[in-house]
């Protein structure tokens, strides 16, 4: 069983929700990413999502777009992301890591090389925003050869038939995009999330994470009451860039936000 599945199993056994923060690797500097990753785990994160920057992030709102631009300006690429994961694994062999990004950098490296290198450095799952199940057979095969979980998105517009198809190719967990929109959206509607999660759970036993539009303890708790995991991204990146010139302050504020979300999630029955 994969590290991601084990993580969810352990959390479920103790009736806890997974908290999954997302940051863009190399934003706002290449030095801050590693201490941020450890800090997020210390303050209550269960799985880390590391964004691989891309020049044309079509599914992202302005906050993550700019994060990608900064990371690319800092010279980030897949090899450097692998190095960061490998450095992280020196101290933390347990916390699952999911890479999230777009397909072209992976195509360029080649599916086989990518999957092998990702597995070797300690990555556990991969989410490729612009790779729907229809086009994913070859890629998923390489991931599976290397014991990596393919994480797929489910959207508010996904119909029940399609949800089934997605859940058949996914492993680890599925990621429900809570709003029609790009990352950093603010129009979260928990009633419609609840309704959709019911449909998703009819199709799969996989844990369901919910992301897009979750920015604080309150929204984390609302969503956590419905899902197995809560994903937060843009809110963290906002803190990091607002404290661009003070790495310690950025890390300490990120810890505070994650900690407040952790506490809110732990209040759930």
């Amino acid at each position: 069983m994969s590290k991601i599945s084990n993580c969810f199993k352990a959390l479920q056994a103790s009736h806890k929700k997974a908290l999954i923060p997302f940051i863009t690797a190399g934003d706002t500097s290449t030095e801050i990413t590693l201490p941020l990753m450890h800090a997020m785990v210390e303050s209550g994160a269960n799985i880390l999502e590391l964004g691989v920057p891309f020049s044309d992030p079509m599914a992202d709102g302005p906050i993550i777009q700019k994060a990608s631009e900064r990371a690319l300006a800092n010279g980030m690429n897949l090899e450097k992301v692998f190095q960061m994961v490998s450095d992280f694994r020196q101290k933390d062999s347990q916390t699952p890591i999911v890479l999230m990004g777009y397909l072209n950098p992976i195509e360029k490296m080649g599916y086989k090389t990518f999957a092998k290198k990702a597995a070797d450095c300690g990555v556990d799952g991969v989410l490729t925003v612009d790779l729907p199940p229809e086009e994913s057979a070859g890629f998923c095969q390489e991931l599976s050869n290397n014991q990596l979980d393919p994480i797929f998105l489910i959207a508010p517009t996904s119909k029940p038939e399609r949800i089934k198809t997605i859940c058949e190719v996914a492993s680890g967990f599925v990621y429900y995009v809570s709003v029609k929109g790009v990352t950093g959206a603010s129009n979260l509607n928990t009633d419609s999330v609840a309704e959709k999660l019911t449909t998703i759970r009819q199709s799969t036993q996989l844990p369901v994470g919910v992301g897009f539009g979750i920015s604080d303890a309150k929204s984390a708790k609302q969503v956590g009451a419905l899902s197995d995991a809560v994903i937060v991204g843009s809110a963290l990146i906002k803190i990091i860039v607002e404290n661009e010139n003070n790495q310690n302050e950025a890390i300490s504020q990120v810890k505070m936000l994650i900690n407040s979300m952790r506490c809110a999630l732990d209040e759930l029955p």
């Binding site: 925003v129 729907p132 086009e135 998105l153 959207a155 517009t157 996904s158 995009v177």
Partner: peptide, 8 residues
Amino acid sequence: FASETLMA
């Protein structure tokens, strides 16, 4: 090669 939201 599109976001899931657009597939429908």
